[in-house]
Simulated scan of single mutants.
Amino acid sequence: MWLPVLGLIVGVTVGFLLDLRVPQEYSSYLSIALLAGLDTIFGGVRSYLERMFNVRIFMSGFFFNTLFAAGLAFLGAFLGIDLYMAAIVAFGVRLFNNLAVIRRIILSKWLNQQE
């Protein structure tokens, strides 16, 4: 359980230390990739807490969601339509839904432990 936390700390530290700039034309793709990754991570945490985690489903969901969202953004840019907004809304809703379920699971375990 400590290895993902260590990876997160190292990744955030390296991200703050390096002065990388994302070009403006790629910002919509990066925002979608970030949301897709966060959605998959929180979905993985949720499934772990529900004792249903499967690494194959996690990895395939991560890559499929990211590629599909980036493809949708690319298609929208090609057609001149902001289709990336649909992916942002969808991933945002799923992200908050997963966070709500994680909160409920943790609170129910904590409350049951208090009794």
Score class of each variant (00 low, 15 high):
M1H: 15
M1I: 13
W2T: 04
P4H: 10
V5P: 00
L6T: 15
L6W: 15
G7R: 08
I9S: 12
I9M: 15
G11D: 01
V12M: 05
F16R: 11
D19M: 10
P23W: 08
Q24L: 10
E25K: 12
Y26K: 10
S27Q: 11
Y29W: 11
L30T: 11
S31L: 15
A33D: 02
L34D: 09
L35P: 12
L35D: 06
L35K: 01
D39V: 04
D39N: 07
D39S: 06
T40F: 00
I41K: 00
I41T: 02
G43W: 05
G44E: 02
G44L: 02
G44N: 01
S47W: 14
Y48R: 13
Y48D: 06
L49M: 04
E50T: 01
E50C: 01
R51N: 11
M52V: 07
M52L: 12
V55Q: 13
V55W: 13
R56H: 08
R56M: 09
I57T: 05
S60V: 15
G61T: 12
F62D: 01
F63Y: 11
F64V: 09
N65Y: 15
N65Q: 14
F68R: 07
A69Q: 15
A69H: 15
A70V: 09
A70I: 10
G71A: 14
L72Q: 09
A73C: 11
L75K: 06
F78H: 14
F78I: 06
F78E: 03
G80A: 07
G80V: 08
G80M: 10
I81S: 06
L83G: 01
Y84Q: 06
A87T: 05
A87F: 01
I88Q: 04
I88P: 01
V89N: 02
V89M: 08
V89C: 03
F91E: 02
G92D: 02
R94L: 08
F96E: 07
L99R: 01
A100C: 00
V101T: 07
R104E: 11
R104V: 07
R104Q: 10
S108C: 03
S108D: 04
L111K: 15
N112W: 04
N112Y: 04
Q114E: 13
E115S: 08
